[in-house]
C-alpha cells in the first residue's frame, strides 16, 4: 500500500505543474525510500527524471514497491481547484491496483473531496541512475537558474533552434530565426562565484528552443541549474528542487542532427 501526504503549495506540485507542457502521462515508481517519476515527451526527444525522497513529504508510507502510469495532467487539474492551504493525500492499494485515490482536505479539516484516478498503461522505463552520467561530459555549466531563465527568454525573441557551443572560458548561446539572430556569451567570472564552467573538449549542440524554455520553468524552483553537453549526446539539464532538499530533476534533450 502507498500513502503520501503533502500540502497543496508544496514543491512537488509546483514541479508537476511546470512539467505539464512537456508530458501529460508519467511512469511513477514508489518504494520505501521515495518517489521517482520518469516520462518521455510525445515526440520522444526529451526525457524527464524526477526524484523525491520520502522525507520530503508531510507523510509517506510505501510497504511494497509500486510502479504506475499516471495521467499527471488530470491529477494536477483536479488538485488546482483545491484551497491553497489544503492537504492532499494520495493512496494506492494492492487490492485494487487500477486506480489511485486523491483526497483533498480543507485547512479547517471540515471538507474532504476525494476522486479516483484511473491508472494508465504506460511503458515502464528501466533507466539506470542518471547521476553518474554527469561526470562524463565534454562540458558542464553550473549557473544561477535566473541566468538560465533570462537567456532562454532572450533566445525566445528569435523563433528557432538554439546552438550551445563551448568558447574560450565560457559558452555561447546562438539562435537564428526568420527575423534575425541572437548571440549570448556566458563566461566564467574571474572571482569565485556561483558560476562554474568546465570544458574538457569543444562541443556544439543544436537544440529545440521550445524545450529549453520548459526546462527553464522548472529550474525557477531552484537557485542553481547545471547543463552538461557532449558531442552527439543528449543535453543534460539538472537541478535540485528547493533549497535544503535532496529532490532533483534531470532532463535529457536529444540534439538536432544536421544534414
Amino acid at each position: 500500500m502507498l500513502e503520501l501526504k503533502l500540502v497543496k503549495e508544496s514543491l512537488f506540485l509546483n514541479v508537476l505543474e511546470a512539467i505539464l507542457d512537456l508530458v501529460a502521462v508519467a511512469s511513477v515508481s514508489c518504494s520505501s525510500t521515495g518517489l521517482k517519476l520518469q516520462a518521455m515527451d510525445a515526440k520522444g526527444v526529451a526525457f524527464i527524471s524526477l526524484l523525491i525522497p520520502a522525507k520530503e513529504f508531510q507523510f509517506y508510507h510505501c510497504d511494497k514497491d509500486l510502479s504506475m502510469g499516471i495521467a499527471i495532467g488530470d491529477m494536477v487539474e483536479a488538485i488546482r481547484s483545491a484551497d491553497k492551504d489544503g492537504t492532499i493525500t494520495i493512496k494506492a492499494s494492492d487490492e485494487n491496483f487500477r486506480n489511485i485515490t486523491v483526497s483533498i482536505e480543507s485547512p479547517e479539516c471540515n471538507e474532504t473531496t476525494s476522486f479516483s484516478l484511473l491508472l494508465v498503461t504506460l511503458k515502464r522505463f528501466c533507466i539506470p541512475e542518471l547521476q553518474g552520467l554527469l561526470k562524463k561530459y565534454d562540458a558542464c555549466v553550473q549557473m544561477p537558474s535566473v541566468d538560465f531563465m533570462r537567456i532562454c527568454k532572450y533566445l525566445s525573441n528569435v523563433d528557432g533552434d538554439v546552438d550551445i557551443s563551448t568558447i574560450d572560458k565560457g559558452i555561447r548561446f546562438f539562435a537564428l530565426g526568420k527575423c534575425g539572430c541572437l548571440n549570448v556569451k556566458y563566461m566564467q567570472p574571474e572571482k569565485a562565484t556561483d558560476i562554474d564552467i568546465s570544458v574538457q573538449a569543444p562541443v556544439s549542440l543544436t537544440l529545440d528552443l521550445k524545450y529549453m524554455n520548459s526546462f527553464a520553468k522548472v529550474s525557477a524552483l531552484s537557485n542553481q541549474v547545471k547543463l552538461c553537453l557532449s558531442k552527439g549526446q543528449p543535453l543534460v539539464v539538472q537541478c535540485k528542487i528547493g533549497q535544503k532538499t535532496k529532490s532533483r530533476i534531470i532532463y535529457l534533450l536529444a540534439p538536432k542532427i544536421k544534414g
Partner: peptide, 14 residues
C-alpha cells in the same frame, strides 16, 4: 525521427 533514435541509443548504451 533521428533525435528519437539518438535518445533510444543513448538509453541502450547506459
Amino acid at each position: 525521427a533521428s533525435e528519437q533514435v539518438l535518445l533510444q541509443k543513448f538509453f541502450e548504451h547506459m
